[in-house]
Design a protein around this nucleic acid. Structure first.
Length: 1224
RNA sequence: GGGCGUAUAGCUCAGUUGGCUAGAGCGCAGCUCUGAUAAAGCUGAGGUCCGUGGUUCGAAUCCACGUACGCCCA
């Protein structure tokens, strides 16, 4: 027996389904069902286990779950492995906050071992939280028990023995220290989520780096990198992009005196020549080494009238309006408007005018200036005269900073654009190879010494006089520089200069450019990676992912893999402290053990992390020296990029790896990932396989990538944690409902931002969760109201109509005691509309399969929504009466209706199960499981498509919809002609409603006749076939299909430009204008499918039916319209009989509304009382009383002499009537 | 500065190899249907298809230039 169905209560239903899955261990049964089948390999991109999930995480996780469920229902084996990203600065940042540590030195004082333990604990804590949240989302993965993860977290850093049962071996109890267990989480034998801090993950990166080393790609490099003083670390190219801000610097114009001959004394004043240079970072002038020009640019020789000094700079810059556009329009983002309080910038010409005017004495090419020597502004600093520069380059020991001061060619970048251009500056660029990226490269090319002024803390090192110890970015430092320049009469002007500048994404501090030595992978094998990239399908097409990835690969620099921090991959590079060129890379812990000369015993028993791994020393095979590990940790994208090897057991379970590599699908939020995760996966896949195969197809780590954009608030703006607008996962889940959210994500075009909803930080709310009411999130944040228009729309358009269709079926099936196991009425004997519904269902099944296999969930959602709409507002609405006819065991038509609808609903639950797993489960449990399973086989046989069809297998009906097979289309039931016909009929009905609207005739008022004419035979047949339906639907007494509506309608013939254009070309305009004016009688054969010949302005034109489009215009006594070749005319004539019938239907409708208002049961019988002064009403009741009583289940209709208080005034036809009802 | 992309109704977006009177959803107004559903359906108002030029019988669509915005890279 079906259970009675009431309001949907989606969220409460989800809670019940979660309990059901849990109690009956449905997921475990699914794992059993698919074990050993053909694999479908999904690779999860690790989620950072550092914070709770927000709604933005749920989008990708919905894709991941949906496609995995889909393939599981198709009988494919899956690994169901989630991943957590565990190592890196982002965890350190939070742990620093948690422990109140502000600088690297404080961490060292606290103890790196304790710090690293806390990092591990934090990761385990948030892994547990994210696991619980994911389960709430319905994300089916082989999860670790969150309580076990918490237990492990608590025991980290202690010697106590912890008991642990892995997800794959629930009966087994592992006893070991927390550290030892945690190091092995997620291995193929244990199952459960993978953690990138696991020893296998770290060790597989060692394998990768070893391969790089063997190919000679690992090197230690000096480079000028963005550096954070407080963070004590360089930032990679990938990270800097995320931290740019608009800021105001004090920039200055400085003059460098030229020296034309040796030992020339420089005296400010008449005829002294200067290079005019400009910089936004005055502190770098301390480390100036050279000045660069563009040889092709024209420079001007300007004499200042004040002291007769001569200045050189780019001619175009004299009157160049600097930042003129930015002054008006800002810097490219709404929040980057010109800062208040910063005046408009002056031109260089203006500066000279303000100090007494100038004269132009001539121009010259930059090429002529190359080689000129000058005096630097801070040549008195010791660093400027140290041989070989700072740090000393042994190759350049005969030079120092001062001796390098000359004008050089600024050169071109790798794209061929000049490094020095006219514009913002002066066309002469101050070069400090120790303080700038381009400067560094130019310096190397020109064999200049470098002067690197800053230490790891971002302060000046020894050798910089009064600057030593000062912070480069401190405004007081800038002031000091400017003061000294002024004293030396070198400062021409200074100003406030706004620009976009990199900041540290974690401390918010300004970054400086600092010469660092870091470890790099030489990426000169980028071509190999591109070939792999080309073998991958990048979805969605519209974002051109393959091209984006190629672009990154083309332009990227060498990969900086080191970071001077504490928590992360221990880079397996051991180096000679005396000689940086003497280094070796370890490919595994086993190799390290055989090479170790000290420290192994102390290290053993710990994970390969700092500080323990640093104890191990090895001996150089080259020099015999003792090598120490570089103190750095690794770039975290190494951790995430290796997972297609580490989690598949590349080193430890090679058969397993071969079975599951490459992944069929990866899916991730794409902004940023082309240079991050996708990049590291691709490059690591390429390198790991380089010695195995030449074929890029075999190297690729994944076959298809599905990217999606970002989740925004409803206004399309980013949501921020800081201002309370970021929506936490459970807030959305418990207020909006998880199925609804999932549908929103799946229906969204992945190439566009999803405007999810709005969080109201001023409206606290109590959430009803599975565990009871709460007003805090899992992480202790107060919960607030979340509104979402797209969610409301999804519920209104999809979820509620589906639920109501289901409720309609169940509630009538209960009343009627419908037995789903009764023998099936043969489909051929069912009414046309049932066959249409079943045919449409087959079209839906194949459409959804195609869409899902193409990872196009938005198409799948669209198809399903259209079907649900057809089901609810067409099939059920049209067929209601078949369900509520009186009980009659032999009513085959009624049985057919129940069977058709039941089949459709059951199939729908399976089709939708991957998308809305909760709702599908609830419906399935009632539609299928509420009956004894032994009966189900009979029902599932016959015309029902799906796994049970025709098998006669006495096995039980699956316990859960998620243990069913995904439906396959039954082509015997697919009737495309019928689908077309119904679509034509639906068009006719829509047009008919429009006509009624035009004529101001409500649908309850019957009208005498509808005439239809079509241009195609197919449509004509379709309409004839479905004319009864059209008649009922439009409430007309007669539907007539005619050859012509000529007697009531005037036809209009228009040229079909698409077919006539190619035939007649220039004559087309004539045709378009004249054709509608041709005598209609000449054109009539066209509507019968024959060609005609007409003469227009002397041109003989042959017209085929396809060349002409027939429309209708103006009618007499009728209203008419046309669309898609169908013409309709509706008679609006009303007879007294028709009027009375219309009133009767009004009367019925009003009574039904009263029944509903009184919440009567469907089967309750009533008595109707009415009062009216209109005699027409009484006449109508005599004629139609029996129908009214039947329709409204009324035993009697009584006329009352007066109006009672229970009565409501209603309008019937044009008459006012007072009506009341009461239960008999 | 370079590369890629986008520009269509108040908002969010479709619009096929060039074809008629440019569409949908939301919002707004009106009407209608309802014995499952205050769910929905229909109708209407609302458009410089970013601008200018070109190709063509014909351009939202193709081409060129410009403008604005987005993303990526410098």
């Amino acid at each position: 027996m079906f259970q009675k169905v009431g309001d949907a209560e989606f969220v409460r239903g989800e809670h019940e389904v979660l309990k059901l899955w849990d109690q009956q261990a449905i997921f475990a049964k699914l794992r059993q069902k698919i074990a050993g089948k053909q694999p479908w390999s999904f690779l999860d991109g690790p989620i950072t286990a550092n914070n709770p999930m927000g709604v933005h995480h749920a989008w990708g996780r919905t894709y991941k779950d949906t496609f995995q469920r889909y393939w599981a229902m198709n009988g494919r084996d899956l690994r169901h492995q989630n991943g957590f990203d565990c190592q890196g600065l982002w965890v350190e940042v939070e742990v620093e906050k948690q422990l109140g540590l502000g600088a690297k030195s404080q961490i060292e004082a606290y103890g790196i071992d304790k710090f690293v333990h806390t990092c591990k604990q934090r990761v385990l804590k948030y892994a547990a939280i994210q696991t619980e949240q994911s389960i709430r989302l319905g994300y089916w993965m082989e999860w670790d028990d969150p309580q076990q993860l918490r237990k492990l977290a608590a025991a980290i850093g202690t010697d106590e023995t912890v008991e642990f049962s892995p997800p794959k071996l629930p009966e087994t109890v592992i006893r070991d220290t927390a550290e030892a267990i945690v190091a092995k989480l997620g291995n193929p034998d244990w199952g459960g989520s993978y953690f990138t801090f696991s020893t296998e993950n770290n060790e597989t990166i060692w394998t990768f780096l070893k391969k790089c080393f063997e190919r000679g790609k690992v090197y230690r490099g000096h480079d000028v990198m963005p550096w954070s003083g407080r963070g004590g670390s360089a930032y990679s190219q990938m990270e800097v992009a995320d931290g740019r801000k608009l800021t105001v610097h004090r920039s200055c114009f400085v003059r460098f005196p030229l020296v034309r001959e040796e030992r020339q004394t420089v005296v400010a004043g008449q005829d002294q020549e200067y290079l005019l240079v400009w910089t936004t970072t005055p502190w770098t002038l301390t480390s100036n080494v050279a000045a660069a020009v563009n040889p092709e640019l024209e420079y001007v020789k300007l004499r200042s009238k004040r002291d007769g000094g001569i200045y050189y700079f780019a001619k175009d810059n004299l009157d160049f309006q600097r930042l003129a556009k930015e002054y008006k329009e800002g810097f490219g983002r709404p929040e980057w408007m010109w800062p208040a309080g910063v005046p408009k910038l002056k031109t260089i010409g203006q500066f000279f005018k303000e100090i007494g005017g100038y004269e132009i004495e001539g121009t010259l090419k930059g090429a002529e200036m190359i080689g000129w020597q000058y005096l630097g502004p801070f040549d008195d600093l010791p660093a400027q005269t140290i041989a070989g520069g700072v740090p000393c380059d042994p190759q350049l020991e005969q030079k120092n900073g001062v001796s390098c001061h000359r004008v050089i060619d600024g050169g071109r970048d790798f794209k061929g654009s000049a490094n020095v251009v006219a514009g913002e500056g002066t066309g002469i660029v101050h070069i400090a190879p120790g303080c700038g990226d381009v400067d560094h490269q130019l310096g190397k090319a020109a064999e200049l010494v470098g002067i690197a002024p800053l230490g790891e803390d971002g302060r000046f090192i020894e050798g910089f006089g009064e600057f030593t110890g000062r912070e480069a970015t401190d405004p007081a430092t800038i002031d000091l520089v400017l003061t000294r320049l002024k004293e030396r009469q070198l400062l021409v002007a200074d100003e406030k200069y706004p620009h976009i500048y990199p900041f540290c994404w974690r401390t918010g501090d300004e970054l400086v450019f600092r010469l660092v030595d870091e470890w790099f992978i030489n990426m000169d094998w980028r071509e190999e990676i591109m070939q792999v990239t080309d073998q991958i399908r990048w979805l969605p097409d519209s974002i051109q992912g393959g091209e984006r990835e190629r672009e990154w690969l083309t332009n990227m620099r060498d990969w900086m893999i080191s970071k001077k921090r504490f928590w992360g991959l221990a880079l397996p590079i051991w180096v000679n402290p005396e000689d940086p060129t003497d280094f070796d890379v370890m490919g595994s812990l086993a190799e390290l053990k055989t090479r170790a000369v000290e420290g192994w015993a102390e290290f053993e028993g710990h994970t390969p992390h700092k500080p323990w791994i640093d104890l191990v020393k090895i001996r150089s095979e080259k020099t015999g020296a003792v090598l120490s590990r570089v103190p750095d940790v690794g770039n975290p994208w190494l951790d995430a990029g290796i997972v297609s090897f580490s989690t598949l057991g590349f080193n430890t379970h090679p058969d397993y790896w071969r079975k599951w590599y490459p992944a069929d699908l990866v899916t991730e939020c794409f902004p940023g990932q082309f240079r991050n995760w996708f990049y590291s996966l691709l490059s690591m896949g390429t390198m790991m396989n380089w010695d195995r195969t030449e074929d890029p197809v075999e190297k690729r780590p994944f076959k298809t990538l599905l990217g999606h954009r970002l989740v925004m608030n409803e206004a399309g703006k980013p949501m921020h944690k800081s201002d309370g607008t970021a929506i936490w996962f459970e807030e959305a889940a418990e207020q909006i409902g998880v199925d609804t959210m999932r549908w929103m994500y799946l229906a969204q075009n992945p190439s566009l931002d999803l405007r999810f909803g709005t969080r109201h930080p001023d409206q606290p709310v109590t959430l009803e969760t599975v565990k009871g009411p709460t007003n805090l999130t899992i992480d202790g944040v107060a919960t607030h109201r979340v509104t979402s228009t797209p969610a409301d729309e999804t519920r209104r358009m999809v979820m509620i109509p589906l639920w109501n269709s289901y409720a309609f079926f169940v509630n009538y099936a209960r009343l009627d005691e419908f037995d789903p196991t009764a023998p099936q009425v043969p489909v051929a004997n069912r009414p046309e509309i049932d066959r249409w519904l079943l045919s449409n269902l087959q079209a839906l099944i194949s459409g959804m399969r195609t869409a899902m296999e193409d990872y196009n969930s938005s198409e799948a959602a669209r198809l399903a929504a259209t079907f649900i709409d057809d089901l609810s507002s067409w099939y059920i609405r049209r067929n209601r009466r078949r369900f509520w006819r009186s009980k009659d065991a032999n009513d085959q038509d009624k049985l057919a209706a129940y069977q058709s609808l039941h089949t459709v609903l059951v199939t729908l639950t399976k089709l939708l199960a991957p998308m809305v797993p909760f709702l599908a489960e609830r419906m399935y449990q009632n539609l299928v499981r509420s009956h004894e399973s032994s009966h189900e086989n009979g029902h599932e046989n016959g015309h029902e498509s799906g796994q049970a069809a025709g098998t006669g297998n006495p096995a039980e009906v699956p316990e859960s919809v998620h243990l069913c097979d995904y439906p396959t289309p039954d082509l015997a039931l697919l009737d495309l002609d019928l689908n077309e016909s119904m679509s034509a009929a639906q068009t006719v009905v829509a047009l008919g409603h429009k006509l009624r609207d035009d004529a101001d005739r409500r649908v309850r008022q019957p009208l005498p006749e509808l005439r239809i004419s079509t241009s195609s035979l197919l449509q004509r047949e379709a309409i004839e076939r479905l004319s009864d339906l059209i008649r009922e639907e439009l409430n007309v007494k007669q539907v007539t299909v005619c050859d012509s509506l000529a007697d009531i309608v005037k036809y209009v013939y228009k040229a079909n430009l698409k077919t006539l254009g190619p035939k007649y070309g220039k004559l087309l305009n004539l045709l378009r204008e004249k054709l509608p004016g041709v005598d209609g009688r000449l054109m009539e054969p066209l509507r019968a499918g024959q060609s005609v010949r007409v003469t227009l302005d002397g041109h003989e034109i042959e017209l085929e039916p396809a060349d002409v489009q027939v429309g209708t215009e103006q009618a007499t006594g009728w209203v008419c319209t046309d669309d898609r070749g169908i013409q309709l005319a509706l008679s609006t004539e009303l007879t007294p009989e028709l009027l009375r019938e219309g009133m009767a239907r009004d009367f019925i409708r009003r009574v039904q509304q009263l029944r509903k208002d009184a919440s009567l049961e469907i089967e309750s019988r009533i008595r109707i009382a009415y009062q009216t002064d209109e005699p027409l009403v009484a006449e109508m009741l005599i004629e139609w009383g029996e129908l009214i009583r039947g329709e409204t289940l009324a035993d009697q209709i009584e006329s009352m002499g007066s109006i009672s208080t229970a009565m409501e005034e209603v309008v019937v036809g044009e008459a006012k009537v007072h009506i009341s009802i009461e239960i008999v």
